[in-house]
Nucleic acid binder design. Structure first.
Lengths: 339, 339
DNA sequence: CTGAAAGCGCTAACAA
DNA sequence: TTGTTAGCGCTTTCAG
């Protein structure tokens, strides 16, 4: 039951460990017959390399981590899938880590010791404070993903939050909507997160159209879960209806929220798009299958993943270019919900 | 930029590496002043343990892997989130690995070398062949998740596939549906996967009700993606409509499929539940927000995760109990789609 | 083509 | 209380 090591193989095959190493790693200078004999013993004994030892020796782990706030959000699932595929093609291995909703979990996930296990880290900074990020070791290649304002010294790939939100809102206004609510929107303030930035885009689109942003149509939320959106929007609709001031369109800050909004509209007997148009943000694969087909802002995740991977790999390879701060393009995926 | 090691700290602090190790790991027998001096140097130099070395030495990694077929399926995201939380409470770290859709990817994910990095593995066997599983090393604690028939020697936690499907179908029949289609169902055959087992449950419910299972209402699918279900069911509905033989209910083999079915029904102008009742399987968090609220079989993921974690931890702790084969309870989460 | 020596960074065991 | 020795399993380097 004790693991079989190289020296076990070496002993049985009557060669040195080094020769076993050479055979196992397919290095050239080994005679065909020695190679054959070693491989036979390897198969016999069921030898397998000890990656930990290999890593200690190599000083590299061959693994990259993606740290996301939560495993159970489809957005991060899609992102992780893309990273895994791309990194796999480059011969690297992806481990996904959850930083958790709690601040504690986030700090532990980005703790130096844990990051030390990896050759590089792609870190989604949602929910991290500037100082937490600033405290990260700089001798480890790190690429930041997300919307926070982050220290200059890091490579950073972000979504076109303002522009995407502006496009979505303009899309609604162009189609004749005049009371465009924003689910998950926030009152004007310091632009720290996605909600704030996207709210800015919502305002910009109104101004572009010569309209005053209707701040009373911002519907803030404690979090961006579908269930929360469902509940909060249901309440907001009830109040609006009492006042006879229903919106004729909703821009949801994320597709998760859009889902909740869709449910609340359904419960309220409002048809999409006839009574209320609806558009979300993220273009999750599933929203096209939610009746009647939900429009969304496509944040070009493919682009984001490719750029982040390129940046990380070039850092791992030792690049000392000045840090890059990239913004992905955004476009509208128009579906029946905004027809 | 070269990483700071214990001996760096030791040299600067004027003590031995062992003392540094003792301080860093909070071991008792160190004088207060030595401890203080060492900690100061640690902070100064920005020393951090090298987990790889620690692991090589310890022979354990403190990390458990969850291997799932895909990152981008909400079901696995939910599962991973639960495991991460539970294992975190027990002081273990979870790394999630994607085995990929391809057989190649699956084999590489369960390759011995890769599993070697972990103290234990929770492996979702969807898509793996019996032989692949049988080839897994036995000197590593492994808990299998999923529906396959697997070698006896492994601990195995599975869903109540047959029973859950039977409950779902009975739920529809009880409400008066008489033409209950099964989206993603498969003709009778060897019960190897979830589709087959759930189709058996669908048959059992019919027989229990004294009905002949209407095999012509099985709608097979090449995969269980929402998009595939959307397309395949749309075609099936068109054909059924021509024949004047529409179903009055659909049991979808998974919630992903249920989503696609919902979309196809919508496109076909069929109302849920008035024209067609609909129920899925998995009880993903999001289905309650898909109009009109989709019923589903709750597979009790919490139970599954707890049992799997318990089994794994006791194996890691050295338990030599005979392997367990557990089946989770199942129940119906009834919502408006089957009202 | 093959092997011996050294050491990656850490800690258990023993010595002082 | 602190230090020394040895070695986890592997690979780089250099010698044969």
């Amino acid at each position: 039951m004790a693991p079989v090591t190289m020296s076990d193989v070496a002993r049985v095959a009557g060669v040195s460990v080094m020769t076993v190493s050479n055979v196992v790693n397919g290095r050239p200078r080994v005679s065909a017959e020695t190679r054959l004999r070693v491989l036979e013993v390897v198969a016999d004994l069921g030898y397998e390399v000890n990656l930990t030892a290999k890593r200690l020796r190599a000083g590299r782990t061959g693994t990259v981590a993606l740290v996301v706030p939560r495993f159970d959000h489809p957005y991060f699932g899609e992102l992780a899938g893309r990273f895994a595929t791309l990194l796999g093609e480059k011969g690297l291995h992806l481990a996904v880590e959850q930083s958790g909703a709690s601040r504690e979990g986030e700090l532990s996930a980005v703790s130096h010791a844990r990051l030390h296990m990896y050759d590089g880290v792609i870190l989604s900074v949602v929910g991290l404070h500037y100082d937490d990020v600033d405290r990260l070791r700089t001798d480890l290649p790190i690429v930041l993903l997300g919307e926070q304002v982050v220290p200059e010294r890091f490579d950073h790939v972000m979504m076109a939050n303002v522009e995407g939100a502006r496009l979505a809102t303009a899309h609604l206004l162009e189609r004749g909507s005049r009371r465009v609510a924003m689910a998950g929107g926030t009152p004007s303030g310091p632009s720290t997160g996605a909600s704030e930035l996207r709210s800015e885009g919502w305002r910009a689109a109104h101004r572009d159209a010569g309209l005053e942003p209707p701040e009373d149509l911002l519907v803030p939320m404690p979090d961006l879960e579908a269930a929360t959106a469902h509940r909060v929007v249901a309440e907001a609709l009830a109040r609006a209806r009492e006042r006879g001031a229903l919106p004729d369109a909703v821009f949801a800050v994320t597709d998760q929220v859009s889902l909740g909004v869709r449910a609340a509209l359904h419960d309220a007997g409002l048809r999409v798009p006839q009574d209320v148009r609806l558009i979300g943000f993220d273009d999750l694969g599933l929203v096209q299958h939610v009746p009647p087909g939900l429009s969304s802002v496509d944040p070009h995740n493919g682009w984001i993943v490719e750029r982040a991977t390129d940046l990380l790999l070039s850092r791992i390879a030792g690049s000392t270019e000045p840090p890059q701060h990239l913004v992905a393009p955004a476009s509208i995926a128009a579906r029946a919900s905004t027809a």
